[in-house]
Design a protein around this nucleic acid. Structure first.
Lengths: 238, 238
DNA sequence: CGGCGCGTTGACTGTAGTCAAATAAAGTGG
DNA sequence: CCACTTTATTTGACTACAGTCAACGCGCCG
């Protein structure tokens, strides 16, 4: 790798180089022609967030939407009493931002170092109006996000914490789609206990006990704090 | 009123009459010109659901999207263990349906008698591709729905049931937007206890007790099973 | 070595779930 | 309009589970 940021070589003027973008064929802009991408890249710029750094999803008027190039982000909001609540995790090629609307107070925080391709909201909306395929792409992803949010509602609506954690692990399992049929797949938790508790609507103590319970049941085995081996995938999904 | 269905007079052939549609200027189709509406009405038809009747949101390939004309619907899904889980309520002029996707198992059930304007998914998608304003309208509403779903996540993520119910009442209060500044506004619950429990992720017994607790606190007063007078709006929202 | 961040464990309390029964509301037919 | 049936909601007693506060273990870095 020649640059410090693998897979991305912005030219000296800071223009986006789409040609060698690692998510060029899976992000929303994949539906655009090279010329259209060039036009879009004219209004966007790159930004790198260090782990823990926050991007204001909508609170900031200038930077309202973005594609995640690498790393991962958590979407969260602060309750009125100061408690953090997680809504989901964004992975590379994911799109984030609230178009056509007054701003929300949802923030995006980098879980790892994260590279983003960000666009001013107004400019992006203008481009959108002329490119139906791009708008359809965004619509489709927004509907996916809605689906995902409802899956979360379903998850945290469960009464027992053991079921919530089981359900979360089941979702993670599907999400990771480990290539190659592993009998006992591994899950990498991208969240620490505090974030996972904020996602599932519980406390770190209860979470810890439920991990213990699932392990005692022979369903999982822990390897360090964030690696989980699934001993009985059938029981997890069932 | 001449017909049995107030505000709607489909012609003898079953074609939609958009001219006197009660939600014609607030539904997604409001952005279309009269001619465009005519074209759209050619692919849609009306349907009336009796209270309790279900419309398969996506399980049915032929009927995949719709605008609600009157009445109200609940969106729900059945957990693998047979428990119903609510995701939200649709009101007149609301749009429902999952475009551009494999089907989900979310169903829509009429809470009251409900009139819908339904469209075959494929046909609707074709129209969408040619009408950017309509697509933008749908995108905007989908983002609203996502916002709403996240508000629900925030709600049911709260640990205490009293807070959940308080939060729900607060949302209902904003939602109803009673015209005229009432000091002690009324809320009409559109859901029975079972549905409300399914929405908030609890049981009808606990719900009942929390209603009692809020009443004992002097926050609300109940009038029958579904009417709530808000005695202290400030405490509810705070 | 000692402090610090993160996760686990323990003891205790409070709150929500469960099963069962009573009461209130709504619908039905005379 | 009233008596009766059916359904919806409330209340009670009990149990189990999750939250809270506090202490401990562990790996990491200065």
């Amino acid at each position: 790798m020649s640059g410090s940021h693998a897979g991305l070589n912005p030219d000296p003027a800071g223009r986006l180089a789409c040609a060698d973008c690692p998510v060029g064929d899976s992000a929303v802009c994949a539906v655009l022609s090279p010329q259209e991408k060039l036009a879009l890249s004219g209004i966007g710029r790159h930004r790198i967030l260090a782990a823990g750094e926050r991007l204001f999803d909508a609170g900031d008027d200038a930077i309202a939407c973005a594609t995640l190039i690498s790393g991962s982000l958590k979407l969260s909001r602060l309750d009125e009493d100061g408690t953090e609540r997680l809504f989901g995790i964004i992975h590379p090629s994911g799109f984030l931002g609230r178009l056509f609307s007054t701003q929300t107070d949802t923030t995006a925080t980098a879980l790892t170092e994260a590279k983003l391709c960000i666009f001013p909201r107004r400019d992006f909306e203008r481009v959108l109006a002329d490119r139906p395929q791009l708008m359809q792409q965004i619509l489709s992803r927004t509907m996916d996000a809605l689906e995902e949010s409802r899956a979360l509602v379903e998850l945290i609506g469960r009464r027992s914490m053991k079921d919530r954690l089981r359900g979360f692990l089941a979702l993670s399992l599907r999400g990771q789609c480990t290539p190659g049929v592993t009998e006992q797949p591994m899950i990498d938790l991208e969240l620490d206990r505090a974030d996972l508790a904020a996602l599932l609507g519980t406390t770190i103590e209860t979470l810890s006990r439920q991990f213990g319970a699932l392990e005692a049941d022979g369903l999982i085995a822990r390897d360090g704090n964030r690696r989980i081996k699934i001993l009985d995938p059938a029981a997890l999904l069932g």
